[in-house]
Amino acid sequence: MAVVRRNIITNPAVRDAFIEGVLRLKREDSTLKTTAFGIPGPPTPVRTYDLFVIWHYKAMMTPVPPNGDTDIRNAAHRGPVFLPWHRFMLSLLEAHLQRVLGDPGFGLPYWDWSIDGSLPAPETALIWKPDFMGGQGDPVSDGPFAFNPADPNGFRVRLDSGPNVNLRQTDRGLRRAFASGSPTLPNALDVGAAFNTLPAPFGDPDLATYDFAPWLANSRGFRSRLEGFTGTGLHNQVHRWIGGDMAPASSPNDPVFYLHHANVDRLWEGWMNRHGRTYLPSMAESADLLGHRIDDPLISPLGAGATPRTTLDNTALFTYDVVP
């Protein structure tokens, strides 16, 4: 039976379950060590939560095409597969959270950042209060993910990526620096504009189509608008506004990553409600797009069982309490 993904602000029980589940995954030994992933340094146990950091990093470092450049297009970003890949990633995290919580009915909550983006001071929003995700800092010093140097089982960042985009070991608290990379969050007008398919200058009819050739970061269509390489910024802008550990390739270090991407996924679901469960590019496109075409396997442990097509209708897995 499908679980329901709910707004974290108005559902304290789901909020508390999410926090507890994240902390359990942070404590759980995956049984693999850092050396298994080619991460320099002494062999160190990798926690299950941190596997998702590695996954995101490795997908981001997989160029498409294989002899191409990850900065141009990679297996999870800067192209059509951005939304399907993250949808699957969230679903697998949700399944892990259900496992460690012993609750198959748990649904990953979402954070509707466009509401906070309409505030004059988004840093004062409820989501950053100690009962929710805690606030900003280096390290974050309040809330459930606050750094306690004396607690080896507390929330710590153990893997991150640096300026050379190398995955490396570390041992420190979570970092956030609000407004460091963008002066504010996207607001409701920005989201509304992404759904506005009226003729120019009132809207953009291309937004009724998922994506367009040449299938690059800033191609026309809805995907690039939601990813944030065209228009006002949306997904990208949220990463930049939160800053700190949300900025580099290791951004799943911050649990807010999942609340943010659940909202991005909810917006995609809203688009599909309007325009159908359609996706481009098709398999007729060049193999140079391997990994982005509709029946190409995602970078995922399910192999051929997880493709963009298999993510288009996931209503058997989850629904949202409100779809815009």
């Binding site: 759980e28 998702f52 996954w55 259900q98």
Partner: peptide, 18 residues
Amino acid sequence: PEELAAAADPATLGNYLS
């Protein structure tokens, strides 16, 4: 949900990534 639950094992994801 059953396929996802079966994949929600740390070793499954870890071995794949390694």
